[in-house]
Design a protein around this nucleic acid. Structure first.
Lengths: 252, 252
DNA sequence: GACATTGCTTGATCCATGTCAAACGAATCT
DNA sequence: AGATTCGTTTGACATGGATCAAGCAATGTC
């Protein structure tokens, strides 16, 4: 009990300069000196537990957040009690970028498993970026990257079949986990089938059926949250297919 | 002939400080002095004609572009010759933000009708933003706004019915045109049904049928590209409906 | 002015995926 | 351990929207 508490405290005490996420997170491309300064403004919070919120829709925006360990789901609560899952975020990923414009959080972020989150006060980040041109430029790139990612999702939701969506989702998880030094073929999903379906614009039942179909076809092995991708190539081929509407007229 | 040429030349010569788009475009929130400096870096190009490209997928990224008059379509060309329409852009709107990260254009932008486009060299904008904090912050907001917009589209494509998508599209056009001093209820669409369908993740036939249905229901009057919205309220009610999947279980 | 070409509309049909329903296993509570 | 709940799976069925197939209206071409 006491021991695990000490361990997580130690884990959180680690500064940006020692952080294994250095290449994924903000410090990328900064000098050692700059990272020290960035270090000063980042607050490291105590671990959050499944279901805890990092921020909620409607709250005033003060900080960006970086997932340090664990995973986070962002979603837009809808009237009627439903929700629209906007994304799943792994260690090193930044959340809250959509709140800069209105200075209010336009979505909510909740933790899918016990997670550590770094808080980056935005006004201090902006002040710092005014003095460090490379940081300023890096923030532009981060925001642009987010736009690029959203654009990919737009294509996925607008043009791809259920099968292609789930394959793309699994490959995305695979690649992102791999970048973090984990197995690209063997991992645990921290989100439910319901959340996956919601995220991909599919019914839970469709997601479930696709998992069993993929398994029958030998593409993967799945047991509850545990997924083993057996044929990455075939999966890549699935998502690389021309979008649905385009399959009608084949060009010369 | 000669006369129209002179007119368009005059129109283009207009500087940022006199631009009617001032509140929509970059200069928002800047001092007169700052706007003058911004003025120096913005290049005003000759008018482009229907089908001309502002930039193409794969080209090296140098500049952001602002639509001054006319309208622009951004799209991601797919293999097989098809395309995925990412957005339609009206005067005052900025395009190319998704290219900052990779320094390469990840989509193409083509002009839907004769249009004037302002070019904003990004490196010069960045340099200027380093010296003008309010400009820097404004760029953060612009990028964040784009993310927010993409997020809305994600909801539209992931959760809404064909009917809701078209209604949302028409209302979006209506609001954006209104902001530019044009009628919110009576306007011409510069894009084809095919492009609308592609953008909304629908078949052309579905878009066409919905237009006739909306007309039959008295929501609007449509003749080719000319649209007259007759019942904005009813249309708002349509798009405000809870997303598809959420209509099942109603909360207490 | 006839003839392509292109964009739009309308009808008939089909199918992928949503919806409804039920059962089951795993996890949590008492 | 038994009961409850929740997440998942599977089956049966319904349907929104895609696809296929004409026909038609507007625009451009020679």
């Amino acid at each position: 009990m006491t021991e695990s508490k000490v361990i997580s405290f130690e884990a959180l005490r680690v500064a940006c300069k020692n952080c294994s996420l250095a290449t994924l997170c903000l410090p990328m491309g900064l000098t050692t000196d700059d990272v020290e300064r960035l270090d000063d403004i980042v607050k490291r919070a105590r671990p959050l537990h499944r279901g805890d919120h990092v921020f909620r829709n409607g709250e005033r925006f003060h900080s960006l957040y970086v997932v340090k360990t664990g995973s986070v789901k962002t979603y837009a609560p809808s009237t009627e009690g439903g929700e629209h899952v906007l994304g799943f975020h792994l260690p090193g990923e930044l959340i809250g970028l959509d709140a800069i414009e209105k200075e209010v959080h336009v979505c909510s972020a909740t933790v899918l498993e016990t997670s550590a989150i770094c808080e980056v006060p935005f006004s201090r980040l902006v002040a710092l970026s005014g003095r460090i041109p490379s940081l300023q430029h890096h923030i532009y790139r981060l925001l642009s990257k987010e736009i690029g990612h959203d654009t990919e999702m737009l294509l996925l939701l607008g043009k791809k079949s259920a099968e292609e969506r789930l394959a793309a989702f699994l490959l995305s998880m695979s690649k992102r986990l791999h970048k973090r030094g984990l197995s690209p073929t063997d991992f645990y999903l921290s989100m439910s089938r319901h959340e996956i379906g919601n995220y991909l614009g599919l019914a839970v039942e469709t997601v479930s059926r696709l998992f069993t179909r993929f398994q029958d076809e030998g593409l993967l092995k799945v047991d509850r949250k545990h997924v083993e991708l057996l044929d990455l190539e075939a999966m890549e081929a699935l998502v690389a297919r021309a979008p649905v509407g385009d399959r009608r007229q084949r060009m010369s």
